[in-house]
Each structure stands twice: as C-alpha cells, then as structure tokens.
Nucleic acid binder design. Structure first.
Lengths: 225, 225
DNA sequence: CCGGTGATGCGAACACTGTACGCAGACGCG
DNA sequence: CGCGTCTGCGTACAGTGTTCGCATCACCGG
C-alpha cells in the first residue's frame, strides 16, 4: 500500500499524539478559527495526523469538548481574602475567560457546567471555602455560588455571542453597528422606551452593574439564619 | 422525468409550505426529538416536502433558528402591577420557557438573545415600562433587566443541559444519579466541602433562592440616584 | 382563450461531517 | 528471535447544509 519511500519518516519526529496535546491544539484552533472550524479532520491536520488517529486518545468529539471546556476552566482564579472582593474577582475572571474563548458560550447548553471536571470542581471547592469562612452555611454558600456564576454565564454568553457575530462579519464594530442601525430602528419602532434606549449612546457596563446588584443581594443574607 | 401518474396530486392538498408552518413544525421536532434531529431533510419529511423546498421560505438554517427562537419568546408573559412581583413572574416565565424547550440553551451562545426579534423586543419594552413606573431611570431599568434575565438564562441553561443529558440517557433520574455516583464521588475526593455537599441530599431550589437575591440587590437601588 | 411571467417544489450534486473497521508498522518483553 | 499490544491511518458509510437548473403551477394582461 504505502510505498516504501514514505515509510517511517516519523520516528522520534515530534511528540506523536497525546491527549493533552490534542486538547491544547483544539483550544488553539477554536480561538483562532471559531467553533465551526473544529472538526476532527481539521484538528488532525494541525497535528500532522489523520482524523481517525485522534480516536485513540479521545472517545469521541463530545468527550473532546468536555476536556476542552474543563481545560479552560483552569484559567479561572479564585483569590482568598475578604469574601466579597474574592467572589467579585472570581466573577470577573470567569467573564474574562469566556470573552477570551467565546466559543465556550455555544457549549454551555450542551454540557452545562461539566460538573465533574477537575478544574471546575477545584474552583467550586475554593469558592465554597471563601463563603463558608465569611459565615455562610455550606448549602447557602452553594446556592450563592450558583447565583453569581449563573449571572456571569448568562451575561457573558450574550457578550460572547455578540463578539462572535462581529468577528464573523469581518467588519469594525462601528461599521457593523451602522449597517445594523436601519434594522434596529425598524425593530424598535412602536416601542418608545427601546427607541429612547437606542438613541442614548452613553456607555453602560451591564456586567459590573449587575455584579454589584447580585453581590448586594447575597450580602444582605449575611446576618440571617 | 417524474411519471405522469404521480403528477399534481398536490392541488389543494394541505397548506403547502409557509414560513409560519415551517417554524411551528421545527419547534415540534425540536421538542420531541432534540436539537440533533433538526436537519433540513428531517424537517422537510415531516412537512411532506423535500429539504430543498424549505429554502424558498427561509434563507438558511441559521435564519430558521433565529425565527424559532423568537417564536418561543412569545411564550414569556410580563404581567403588570407591582414591579417586584412582575419581574419575578417574568423571570419564572422565562425559566419555564427554557425548561419546556431545553434545546434553546444550545442556541444562546450562537444567537445571544436575538435582540431584534419582535417578540423579544416586545417583552423588553414591557419590562422597561414596569421598572420605569417603579421609579428606575431608563438606563438603570435596562441594566436591571439584563441582570435578572442574565441570571435566569445562566441558571436555566444549566438545568436544561442536565435535563437534556438525562433524557438522552433514557433512564430515570434516580438510576442516572446512581450510575453517576461513583464518578461523582471520585471527582469530589480531596474536596471536603463538595464531599459534604454531595452527601447532603436536602433539596435546594437554586433558582428561587438566586432570584430573591438578585431582586433584593436591585430593590436596594430604588432610593438612590 | 392564449401566452407569458413569477413563484414554488424538487432531484441531483458537491463538499463536508463524525465515526467504525481492519490493516500495518513499531515497541517492549519473554 | 517471536509475540502481543499499542498507535496511526486509509477506506467507507451515512448523514449534513446548500446550490443549481428544471418542471410545474397560479395568475394576469391582451
């Protein structure tokens, strides 16, 4: 089959294939080319391998996605110290992670939060510690974390989706907004408040505003049973 | 080509094809068989049509998805009246919508909130009204809505993802949990707080807990500028 | 009534996708 | 040396979104 000439040039050449390497390259591919470009053949090519070779290290594409997700969860930092600042910093960190890897937004609906991955469990454990030290019961700490993280995921996914659409369009944000303006204007016609909102161009940082509200709400529970 | 016999049996037969009909059938297909089963050929079959016929009424699959999303946004109810109860009811309504159509969770990352669809704009306009009447400025009302809706989307997507995985497994929840238990136990080993949490089986309603916290945080802003 | 026009459905085709299978070569151990 | 296990890969299959050109229809002006 394969000619004798093209035989075994790949001896110690490169690191061959390993699960870690595959996951790392998948993340690079996702960051550079977006989620639609993640195919086994594509990924294989970048690793100088055939698509089917990947299956020796990864059960299937879904498993690869779970691995990829947990891998980027490692970027989340949970500082210690005073609880409110610690949780706020974690929240910012999660948001930044999502904006750095916007394709993760498309995966939340499939994998939820991939509760069993080591990096995610590690993060949760640390946050639980911070809140318990602050005086929350364990179950309340758990619910508080879900509240904050739920908020962050919801908001940041929205931002990420916008960024992805923008990037795919290939235009600058101003250009893109300008082109969308007629459609937007027509969409809000008959909705006076949305109309006012569309015209009002003062910057609004929904994330930090919302985060403060959520933390206020959680903080109010501190005295209670 | 086509034999003379199979000619024109489709005169007044059925409503032919229309955009509304396609969208409605797509939702039915998604609810019954899940997001992986949504293919143009599949959808066409259910409408007694060929896959390619759908393209006369819908530009492409992405557009179909946007239409489908906005269509189910119509299920969200925004009651009037006292602001806090109104917003809470809207939040519950959004959550129920997501749990009724769990596949929508997989779409948020792609389409964001599909800001331009008529049903979504309608819902936003009404919520803005409720909050403005309560004394919030327009821009603050906007940010408050994003906070609440962001939270709901984040939490409910997580729930939806779990439900989808459960449904796909075809087992009962107890059975599924039992099978997962070894893996879960191993995942939390070395994490004492998660371990305690895993053993503690008292029911926790993260959604209503979190919703109250978020609303508390928003409410605290009412006196301020 | 006739001819033309625009809308609609569809079969075939193309470039891709995830993945099952079986073979070929490399490596470690007796 | 021989053997078994591991790893990469070529092939193949069923399925995907979408384009294109053709056939058919409803309608409308002359």
């Amino acid at each position: 089959m394969t000619s004798v000439w093209t035989r075994q040039p790949r001896k110690g050449k490169e690191p061959q294939l390993s699960r870690e390497q595959i996951v790392a390259e998948a993340i690079r591919l996702l960051d550079e080319d977006g989620i639609d470009s993640l195919s086994m053949r594509n990924l294989g090519t970048r690793l100088n391998a055939a698509a089917t070779s990947l299956y020796r290290h990864v059960a299937n594409k879904d498993e690869l996605i779970e691995l990829v997700a947990d891998e980027i969860y490692a970027e989340i930092r949970v500082p210690g110290g005073e609880w409110r600042e610690s949780v706020a910093e974690t929240a910012r960190s999660v948001r930044e992670m999502i904006l750095r890897h916007p394709w993760i937004a498309s995966m939340f609906g499939q994998i939820g939060l991939s509760y069993l991955g080591p990096n995610f469990t590690e993060m949760t454990e640390r946050m639980l510690g911070v809140l318990e030290d602050a005086g929350f019961s364990l179950t309340e700490a758990d619910m508080a974390i879900s509240t904050v993280i739920g908020f962050v995921i919801g908001i940041a996914s929205s931002e990420a989706a916008w960024n992805t659409a923008l990037a795919r369009s290939g235009k600058t944000e101003e250009q893109w907004l300008a082109e969308l303006h007629p459609a937007a204007a027509q969409a809000v016609s008959g909705h006076p408040r949305l109309q006012r909102l569309l015209e009002n161009t003062e910057p609004r940082d929904k994330f930090t505003y919302g985060l403060e509200r959520v933390l206020d709400g959680v903080e109010a529970r501190l005295g209670q049973p």
